[in-house]
Amino acid sequence: MFPFSFEWIWDMGHMVFHGGLWYALSIMGLGLTYCIIKAAVDTAKGKGGYHH
């Protein structure tokens, strides 16, 4: 999974596979972080309720 495991090879397969993986994980992580931080800021600001 990481370049420091001994079976790791810097070949096309590893780059494409793990590129896709980390891309997806980053989007999820960043998205979630954004939501949490914004929610904390909104709460601190005491924003009014939304209606979904």
Binding site: K38, A39, D42, G49, H52
Partner: peptide
């Protein structure tokens, strides 16, 4: 309030998550 805002914010950018999910 925090959960209320969190839920709202997640709805707002749900398309991003949905696109990642589809991928």
């Amino acid at each position: 309030p925090f959960f209320h805002h969190l839920s709202h914010n997640m709805h707002e950018i749900m398309a991003v998550f949905a696109a990642t999910g589809a991928f």
